[in-house]
C-alpha cells in the first residue's frame, strides 16, 4: 500500500480531530481574522434599520431552536443591539416553542446592557402555536393574537404598544429562523399585508431565500454566521469579543482545512492511480 493509498484510507477520526482543533484553537486563543467585504444582503438589512426613525416599531420573530443557536444567536444579538442603539421599539414573538426562551435571553441580555426598559423599549410576546394563523392574525390585530406578554402582562396598557395595532404600524419584521417559517412570514405577512421583511437564517438555507431576495419579497438577508460577523463588523464591534466574528475565525480555519482535505484527497486519488481503476 502506497502513501497515497494510506492517505485515501485515512481513518475518519483523524479528520474529526483536525476539525475539532481547527474550531477550538481560534476560539480559545480569540484569534481574529480580518473580515471580508460585507455581502450586499446583510448591508441592506443594516441600512434599512439605520434609516428608521427613533420610536419606529420593529418586530422580531425568534423562530429557531437551540440546535441552530450558534449561527442565529449572534445574528439576533447584533441586530437587537442595533435596534436598541437606534432607539427603536422592539416587539418580539416566537412561532417555534423553543425559540421563545432564546429570544427572551437575547432581549434581556442586550436590554440590560444598553438600559432598554421592558414594556417601554421592548416587549417579548412569547410563543403562540398555529404558525400561519398567528401571522395572519397579527395582520388584523396584534392584541387579539397576543392579549398578554410572555410573562402575562396585558399588552394594551404597555407604553411600547401605543399606536401599534397591526403590521401597518410595524416598520420592519425580522425573522430569525432555521426552518420553513420564513416562507410563511413572506407569504402571509409580506404578500398579504405588505409588511417589509428581513430574514436571518442558517447558511444552508441561503439558496432557499435567494429567489425571494431577487424578487424583492425580502429587503435583506443575514446569512449564517458569516452574516452575523458582517453585521457586527458594520456596527464596529470588537472582533475579539463579538460572538459572530469570533466564531467566523473558527469557521474560516475549518473551511480552510476542508479545502485542504479535498485538494489532498484529489491529489492522492490521481497519484495512487485509483482514477484508472474505475
Amino acid at each position: 500500500m502506497t502513501t497515497w493509498d494510506r492517505l485515501l484510507d485515512l481513518d475518519r477520526r483523524w479528520i474529526f480531530l483536525g476539525i475539532a482543533l481547527a474550531v477550538v484553537i481560534p476560539i480559545v486563543t480569540k484569534y481574529a481574522l480580518p473580515q471580508g467585504k460585507p455581502a450586499p444582503p446583510t448591508v441592506a438589512v443594516y441600512d434599512y434599520i439605520d434609516d428608521l426613525k427613533p420610536g419606529d416599531v420593529v418586530m422580531i420573530a425568534f423562530d429557531y431552536s437551540p440546535s441552530s443557536m450558534p449561527e442565529l444567536q449572534p445574528q439576533a444579538l447584533a441586530v437587537v443591539r442595533h435596534l436598541f442603539e437606534r432607539d427603536l421599539r422592539v416587539l418580539s414573538v416566537s412561532l417555534n416553542p423553543q425559540g421563545t426562551a432564546l429570544g427572551r435571553e437575547v432581549l434581556a441580555t442586550i436590554g440590560d446592557e444598553l438600559g432598554a426598559v421592558d414594556g417601554v423599549d421592548y416587549v417579548h410576546l412569547g410563543f403562540k402555536p398555529g404558525g400561519s394563523q398567528v401571522i395572519l392574525g397579527m395582520g388584523e390585530s396584534i392584541e387579539v393574537v397576543y392579549p398578554t406578554t410572555a410573562d402575562g402582562r396585558k399588552i394594551s396598557g404597555l407604553p411600547i404598544m401605543a399606536g401599534v395595532r397591526n403590521y401597518d404600524d410595524v416598520a420592519l419584521l425580522i425573522d430569525f429562523a432555521a426552518g420553513n417559517l420564513p416562507f410563511a412570514w413572506i407569504a402571509y405577512a409580506g404578500e398579504r399585508y405588505k409588511q417589509d421583511i428581513a430574514c436571518g437564517i442558517t447558511a444552508v438555507m441561503a439558496t432557499d431565500l435567494y429567489p425571494y431576495l431577487q424578487s424583492d419579497q425580502i429587503i435583506g438577508l443575514i446569512n449564517g454566521l458569516k452574516g452575523a460577523a458582517e453585521y457586527e463588523y458594520l456596527m464596529g464591534l470588537d472582533p475579539t469579543e463579538a460572538p459572530g466574528m469570533l466564531g467566523m475565525s473558527a469557521q474560516s480555519i475549518a473551511h480552510l482545512l476542508i479545502i485542504v482535505l479535498v485538494i489532498a484527497g484529489n491529489i492522492a486519488y490521481f497519484a495512487s492511480g485509483r482514477h484508472r481503476r474505475r
Binding site: 414594556g119 402582562r153 396585558k154 394594551s156 396598557g157 404597555l158 407604553p159
Partner: peptide, 9 residues
C-alpha cells in the same frame, strides 16, 4: 401607574 399595571385605561 394604571397603564403600567395593565389596568383598563
Amino acid at each position: 401607574m394604571a397603564r403600567e399595571a395593565g389596568w383598563p385605561a
